[in-house]
Design a protein around this nucleic acid. Structure first.
Length: 587
RNA sequence: GCCAGUGUGGCGCAAUGGUAGCGCAAUUGAUUUGUAAUCAAUCGGUUGCAGGUUCGAGUCCUGUCACUGGCUCCA
């Protein structure tokens, strides 16, 4: 495929860039189609995305819905069929502005104003449609062979909620129709992993209209959550944390001290009784500060590492709620480390090791971001420089690849974030390591240093799962509900072949239960195939025991695992194997 | 909070403005079962909620709540 670069030369497109160029060109072709059908439309940004493209468009007073997409798509097909030639030209700034003004492209004019003084301003044209763009693009519209418009939504101009909301039209584009069909097939498969669907099928959790965003954990989900909690507690022990638990509701005075009453009140559930105001905690840090402050601390006590599986409530915007990924009540796998300034790198490294150990346990790929000082931040330049350097040094000493997210740190300190992907490739922040100078200051925390002077400790806030809720959502999608045995709500399902083998089944189940295995018996009067089907497709159990005449006579069991192989074996051997598998948390 | 869409028995779905159906599940009975759905009967909904238009509304309109996909925000 040949493409047109913005200096006017035509060359063969590097294969790895073909899709991107096609998708970006598809955005231009869509814009042309839209401008034919809606002459008043005003265009914002129209980039390529991972599987396609979008264009943010101001349609004025015209409402666009998905019903309007087929007509736009048809117009795009016409444009492709017309096989229009792409051309490119460059204009000096003033003329570029003039051209865009003439064409009524207010957003493009504004965009030119955002460009650096020395920026080249180039335009691509196909037919009578002109778009300001750096390219490159396809040479002829016919090169676009496979595309589909998929969605319409709103998006703020320049991603700023203070700006006008434009209409975003999303589409996908591929090199061939086969690749596009494959994409939709994959999407269908991915949707089957959705934790909301699996959570309902497996009865892990539920939601109710009386509490949007407040998950109810059902018995199966609770078994899973408890197993994860057990793992978490063992890891806290292994990494030298103490565990604490702080109250859910605390006086307004505390939240005023911490700054939450001023800066976070919109997200807090508050209440009052006996003429005093209270808030339900949205974070666990103030409680940890009170514990730190409860007695004098020496430099020898540091680092003081306090872990807390703390249940927080935040009044998140309802439009942001999403299954278990974004809820209003959640249990953070939180911890607060009170450290000396000289311990930053060492403690951040230690924390990052713990967090990445979790992800390795579950086989999660992850992305790391280092977020630096935002514009409206508190604290001295030296503190910030030292903190950012400490975080970077920790990441580099571990050989972790990370991207820098300039100016995206918290107002109280820089942070390292760990992002995981859900079944549809959306990323969610799970792990976070945040340095904080502000809270120790607000609470006037101190320790006595070696020279007898009083010093202020630095705080590290950290979470690895992010929250048990979000992480269980991730685990559900990662395993498509087929959790490793140690996490499975039901580890063994016993299936009597007929009514006659119920007693034997109960006896076998009891032996497993005595060994600490989570087991259920399917006592229903159904055929064995029916029970297997449900154990597999609904319960998603790692092991089924099929018990009939043969097994009862031989005094053994038939084990069917997820590979669907059935092996007749000794019960005690099986118990030894499965308990070892659970203990070692294999899989 | 913003943009668009959706909302029917526990779950998945159907019903050109004209008597709300189907499958699964559940219950009961029959069957006593050998590796991904045994058969039959029965039960179950006034269609998220509140108004409105109409002789008549699941279907049209308004408001509201929830959910879905995005935006913003965020663990």
């Amino acid at each position: 495929m040949k493409i047109l670069y913005n200096d006017g030369h035509v060359d063969v497109c590097p294969e790895e860039e073909e899709e991107h160029v096609l998708r970006h060109s598809a955005a231009h072709i869509m814009a042309q189609a839209v401008s034919r059908l809606y002459p008043e439309a005003d265009f914002g940004y129209g980039p390529a995305t991972e599987n396609g493209f979008y264009y943010d468009i101001d349609f004025g007073d015209t409402k666009i819905s998905e019903d309007d997409l087929p007509a736009i798509e048809d117009e795009m097909k016409k444009i492709v069929k017309e096989n229009l030639k792409f051309s490119v030209f460059e204009l000096p700034r003033e003329e570029a502005i003039k051209l865009m003004q003439e064409r009524g492209e207010a957003y493009k004019v504004e965009h030119i104003g955002d460009l650096p003084e020395d920026a080249r301003i180039t335009f691509y044209q196909q037919g009578d449609y002109i778009d300001m763009c750096v390219g490159p693009h396809i040479c002829y519209t016919k090169a676009l062979k496979a595309f589909k418009l998929t969605a319409v939504s709103g998006a703020y101009w320049k991603n700023d909620a203070n700006n006008k909301m434009l209409t975003r039209i999303n589409g996908v584009a591929f090199r061939t129709k086969e690749e596009m069909a494959e994409h939709f097939r994959m999407l269908e498969e991915a949707e089957k992993r959705d934790h909301r669907k699996i959570g309902k099928e497996m009865e892990l959790f539920m939601m109710d209209d009386t509490g949007p965003g407040f998950p109810f954990w059902l018995p199966n989900g609770m078994r899973l959550k408890n197993a994860l909690m057990q793992y978490w507690m063992e890891m806290q022990d292994a990494y030298g944390y103490e565990q604490v638990d702080t109250p859910i509701i605390l006086s307004r005075k505390l939240w005023e001290t911490s700054g939450h009453w001023d800066h976070y009140k919109a997200n807090m559930y508050t209440t009052s009784i006996d003429d005093e105001d209270y808030a339900i905690k949205p974070m666990n840090c103030p409680g940890a500060c009170l514990i730190y402050k409860s007695k004098p601390r020496s430099y020898r006590d540091l680092p003081l590492k306090l872990a807390e599986a703390g249940k927080d409530h935040r009044h998140e915007l309802k439009g942001a709620l999403h299954g278990l990924f974004r809820v209003r009540a959640f249990t953070q796998d939180d911890a607060h480390l009170f450290i000396r300034p000289d311990q930053i790198t060492e403690q951040v490294t230690d924390t990052a090791h713990l967090i990445t150990a979790y992800y390795h346990q579950f086989g999660f790929p992850y992305k790391v971001e280092l977020s630096t000082r935002p514009e409206d931040s508190m604290g001295s330049d030296e503190d910030w420089e030292r903190a950012e350097a400490g975080l970077a040094a920790a990441l580099e000493s571990m050989g972790v690849d990370y991207t820098i997210n300039e100016g995206d740190g918290a107002f109280y300190g820089p942070k390292i974030d760990f992002h995981l992907q859900d079944c549809l490739g959306r990323t969610w922040q799970c792990g976070t390591i945040q340095l904080d100078f502000q809270l120790p200051h607000n609470f006037q925390l101190e320790y006595t240093d070696a020279d007898g002077s009083k010093k202020q400790p630095i705080m590290i806030h950290r979470a690895g799962f992010g929250s048990f809720e979000r992480f269980i959502g991730m685990l559900t999608e990662q395993y498509a509900g087929k959790f490793p045995t140690w996490l499975s709500p039901c580890q063994v399902k016993v299936l009597p072949v007929s009514e006659k083998h119920r007693d034997y089944s109960q006896a076998v189940a009891q032996k497993l239960r005595d060994a600490g295995v989570r087991v259920k018996v399917d006592m229903r009067d159904e055929k064995i195939g029916y029970k297997i089907r449900e154990a597999r497709s609904i319960d998603r159990v790692p092991y089924m025991l099929i018990l009939g005449e043969q097994e009862e006579e031989a005094g053994n069991i038939s084990v069917r695992d997820r590979s669907n192989e059935t092996v007749q074996r000794d019960l005690d051997d099986f118990i030894a194997d499965i308990t070892a598998e659970i203990k070692e948390r294999r899989g």
